[in-house]
């Protein structure tokens, strides 16, 4: 497992000139683009961090976007692992879980590094010291990894059977990204915004990824503990998704070699 994770990390960046730098460049670039587009042109102005008083759209964005980027990368790369490792699966027996999980853990390591850098930058620019929230951040990352793994494992197993799930997921993830309050605060969704009688604000608040974005913002933007309801909601979804995902994957894993 450790070897596979290392292989994933090494081979991902070996061939690129900037190496590890790429993994940081991408979110930095996207933040710059969104900050100009949304913060400057469209005037999306979230409330300043409470109680930190941080008033920077870039930090607001990063705190929500890094976890979401992890989630979407976990789904898209995790999903390809079994199908792309075709030869390995049909020739060698090993616990199939290792493949998607090691790629997700490699991504989680990247996320941890990105979040640490964000914490350092926040500290340097605002004087807010985040270290006391480290345990909370670790718990949040673990919950996010569980949640993303669960869904990724489900999709990975399904993708072996139906190869177009990969493309479908790409499209749905894009829609999901914009519907989840990542680029904007949840308060931007009007109260009682009804679509076919469904309250969109309620839907947004029930959405686990929205809650993750909010919780990470609580830590890295507001610099405080996430609320208990949010936390419990995340625990509930993470455990449920992880349990169901692993169960489904393991049940289907026996047949992978045949379906390739």
């Amino acid at each position: 497992m450790r070897n596979l994770t290392q292989r994933e990390l090494r081979s991902r960046y070996r061939r690129s000139f900037l190496g590890w730098g790429w993994s940081l460049l991408q979110p930095a670039m996207m933040t710059a683009v969104y900050a100009i587009m949304l913060g400057y042109y469209l005037k999306v102005t979230p409330e300043p961090g409470d109680p930190s008083g941080i008033d920077s759209f870039a930090f607001f964005l990063l705190a929500g976007m890094l976890p979401f980027n992890f989630f979407s990368a976990a789904l898209t790369t995790g999903m390809g692992t079994i199908v792309n490792a075709g030869g390995l699966v049909t020739r060698v027996w090993f616990p199939r879980l290792v493949l998607p999980l090691s790629s997700i853990i490699a991504l989680a390591v990247s996320l941890a590094i990105e979040l640490s850098i964000l914490a350092v930058i926040v500290t340097v620019f605002t004087g807010e010291f985040l270290l006391h929230l480290l345990p909370v951040a670790v718990v949040l990352v673990v919950l996010l990894v569980m949640f993303a793994s669960g869904i990724a494992l489900f999709l990975t197993a399904a993708n072996v059977r139906f190869r177009d799930i990969e493309y479908l997921t790409g499209v749905l993830l894009l829609a999901y990204f914009y519907m989840t309050p990542v680029l904007y605060p949840v308060t931007f969704i009007p109260q009682r915004a009804l679509l076919f009688g469904i309250d969109l604000r309620e839907v947004a608040l029930a959405n686990p990824m929205a809650r993750f974005a909010m919780a990470f913002r609580n830590v890295f933007y507001d610099v405080r503990l996430p609320g208990l309801p949010t936390f419990l909601w995340l625990v509930f979804w993470s455990v449920l998704a992880f349990y169901c995902g692993v169960r489904y994957f393991v049940r289907r894993a026996d047949r992978f070699a045949e379906m390739m």
């Binding site: 596979l4 030869g87 390995l88 020739r91 060698v92």
Partner: peptide
Amino acid sequence: LELGAGFHPELSGRENIFLNGTI
């Protein structure tokens, strides 16, 4: 069943020994 199943072309022989051995 097949020699070299699971070798990763970008990694060195050394790294592949560890990888293959682990699998």
